[in-house]
Amino acid sequence: MNIFRLSGDLSHLLAILLLLVKIWKTRSCAGISGKSQILFAIVYTTRYLDLFTSFVSVYNSFMKVVFLTASYGTLYLMFFKFKPTYDHNHDSFRILYLIIPSLVLSFIIVHVYTVMEILWTYSIYLEAVAIMPQLFMVSRTGEAETITSHYLFALGSYRALYILNWIYRYYTEDFLDMIVIIAGIVQTILYCDFFYLYITKVLKGKRLSLP
């Protein structure tokens, strides 16, 4: 554990909780892509299956349980409790275009051919692109609520902080996992456009709207 990894995890946690609180307080999931949330639920499920097979630390297990619970909680709020507020007309990204290629890639580029390892790798590839339906939705509606912008910024920052963590781990403990590093870089690049808008607009008190 180092400061970059901890900041990344906390940023990730903040993002997930922000989303839950936003939906709960406003009683609405308008502007949130249900498809991205479905992808994140798949990501956490396939990655954290190791809750049952390997123990790293109380911290790790606790966070995994929180991420899984919050992710399914978000799906419940979006697709059951506040379903009438879900803006499915603008959530039109075809997620099979992300699900299938990630699955194929996880069979081609993987460290070891075991079921658990392929599922873990799949979760890494899918996570890298899971935000695309949400970004597509923002670009279609041309705007995002400020709280949604904060959510996206926290979620994007998490993998960027993990990149610093991997650089740190490379020098301090010779840790080098190219699968997660390349996927993490791709994931972070996808947010760059949004980061720019966030810094130039939202941080200056303006609403995020596209020209």
Partner: peptide, 10 residues
């Protein structure tokens, strides 16, 4: 060993 198969990150 260049990577750990026990994934210790989240």
């Amino acid at each position: 060993e260049s990577f750990k198969l026990q994934h210790d990150e989240l």
